Simulated assay, not measured.
Amino acid sequence: MTANWKSVVITALLAALASGAATWASATWIMREREAPSLHSIVHDELDLNADQKRRLDAIEARFAGRRQALEAEVRAANQELAAAIAASDGDTPQVQAAVDHFHVAMGDLQKATVGHVFVMRSVLTPAQAEVFDGRVVEALHQDAD
Rank of each mutant, 00 (worst) to 15 (best):
A85W: 00
S89T: 05
V120Q: 14
S26A: 07
S7W: 06
W5F: 10
M1Y: 02
M107N: 08
V100S: 09
K112W: 04
L39F: 13
N4R: 14
A18T: 13
A87M: 03
V8P: 01
G20R: 03
D45G: 07
A145Y: 10
R76F: 03
D90N: 07
V118C: 03
A130L: 01
H117S: 05
G66F: 04
V43Y: 07
A99M: 09
S19G: 15
G91Y: 00
D45C: 01
A84Y: 00
G91R: 00
N50Q: 04
D146I: 15
K54D: 07
S7F: 09
R32W: 09
T28H: 03
A36P: 06
M1D: 11
Q80F: 05
K6D: 08
T11K: 14
A3I: 13
T2A: 01
W24N: 03
R63I: 05
T93A: 02
V9K: 06
H142T: 14
I10T: 15
T2I: 12
G116K: 02
A83H: 11
R56M: 12
A99R: 00
I42H: 08
V43I: 14
A99F: 00
F103H: 14
W5T: 15
D58C: 01
M1N: 08
Q69I: 05
S38D: 11
W29L: 10
V137N: 02
K112M: 12
R32Q: 11
A21G: 15
E139A: 15
A78C: 02
T2P: 12
L17W: 07
V124R: 04
L125W: 01
G116V: 03
G108I: 05
L13I: 15
A12I: 03
R122K: 13
V100L: 15
Q95N: 08
L47V: 11
F64L: 05
A145C: 06
S41H: 05
A16F: 04
Q53M: 02
L14T: 14
R68I: 08
G91T: 03
W24V: 10
T114G: 02
R136D: 09
A16M: 11
V75N: 08
V115P: 02
F64Q: 11
L17D: 12
R63F: 14
A128L: 13
E72R: 09
R56Y: 12
V138P: 10
A36G: 02
S89F: 00
A84M: 07
A27W: 00
S41E: 07
V100E: 14
V137F: 04
E139R: 14
G135S: 10
D146T: 14
A140Q: 09
D52F: 04
A88E: 04
Q111T: 12
M107T: 07
A70R: 08
T93D: 01
A15W: 07
V115Y: 06
A15M: 15
Q143T: 13
D45F: 01
P94R: 13
V8I: 14
A62P: 00
H44G: 04
Q80V: 13
R55T: 13
L49K: 05
H102F: 06
L125F: 04
